[in-house]
Write a protein that binds this DNA or RNA. Structure first.
Length: 282
DNA sequence: AAGCCGATCAACCGCAATGTT
DNA sequence: CAACATTGCGGTTGATCGGCT
């Protein structure tokens, strides 16, 4: 009746492995190969549970394990695969040579997941979540650009349409951005209050699509009235299903579809010193 | 210097799936 | 086919470390 324990608890060591134990395990597996984990510890002279030996080998001692930081490409792959597979860490690991499921799982939980949350992405569904998004910091980055019209043009192709729509809703109608007052960030960086000026002559970045007026006065981008003011191309059409409630909820059935556009949305948060140039380069 | 706290990651636990008798 | 053994997987824990006060 019931399952017998995977190992005899008496006399079985737990906790971190010593280098001597590692060496015993390596030597044994080099000679006999992995497998038969139940009898392995006894045969190898280890006071360990077979399960512990298998875990130590597969997650740490295996010679084909690639250690060190995850590359950008690896992280992208993990995000894409996770959007399709969910928490199938072993399946994800199978597509990342040299990485273990445990390592990927840890990296997801400690790095990637937090970045997605900061970027307003639900890490479970890979859908935008505006209750997660630090929208004011995003706006601060976008608005605090000398050539905001151009920025908006870029942003409209890079950001989720509903993000831009929400951004427009946050701004009072007929009000220039210089008076923009973030709702939840009363102490937001004062830079956000800075008037947005047209592209200056010393602006070294080429801006082929720049729609900034040619005068030297400060210009303000009003997303709400962008269409009437000739900026219709700056704002995407409102999604049919868009409403604040839908955005605040966590859809359960659309992870695969969401995965298809997740990497075109924000994949990462914005560090304090983040600039639009950084954004475009990434 | 000491204590606190958050981040990281190796390791453990329980359960499910699969294999064997 | 049932019972048991083994392996694999995902969630969680806890030790450790570095930064901060």
């Amino acid at each position: 009746m019931g399952r017998s324990p995977c190992c005899d608890k008496n006399g079985v060591k737990k906790g971190p492995w010593t280098s001597e134990e590692d060496q015993k395990l390596i030597d044994y597996i080099r000679f006999y190969g992995p497998g038969n984990w139940r009898t392995l510890p006894k045969n190898a002279g280890l006071q360990r549970c077979g399960k512990s030996c298998r875990l130590r080998w597969t997650n740490y001692l295996r010679p084909d394990i690639k250690r060190g930081r995850f590359s950008f490409e690896e992280e992208e792959t993990i995000i894409q695969l996770h959007s399709v597979m969910g928490n199938k860490w072993s399946a994800i690991a199978a597509r990342l040579p040299g990485r273990t499921d445990n390592e990927i799982k840890n990296h997801w939980n400690t790095h990637i997941r937090k970045r997605l949350v900061r970027s307003g992405i639900d890490p479970v569904t890979h859908s935008p979540r505006f209750d997660l998004l630090d929208i004011s910091s995003l706006l601060a980055v976008l608005i605090n650009q000398p050539n905001f019209s151009s920025v908006a043009t870029h942003a409209s192709s890079l950001l989720h349409p509903d993000v831009l729509r929400l951004a427009s809703l946050l701004l009072p109608p007929q009000q220039p951005l210089q008076n923009f007052n973030p709702i939840h960030e009363p102490n937001l960086d004062q830079n956000i209050q800075t008037p947005i000026t047209s592209v200056s002559s010393q602006d070294s970045q080429p801006q082929a699509e720049c729609t900034t007026p040619s005068n030297n006065e400060a210009t303000y981008f009003d997303p709400v009235n962008a269409r009437v003011e000739g900026h219709a191309d700056l704002l995407p059409p409102l999604s049919e299903s868009f409403d604040l409630e839908s955005l605040m909820s966590t859809p359960q059935q659309n992870s695969i579809e969401a995965g298809a556009n997740s990497s075109s949305f924000f994949d990462f948060g914005f560090p304090d010193n983040f600039t639009f140039e950084d954004f475009m380069l990434n």
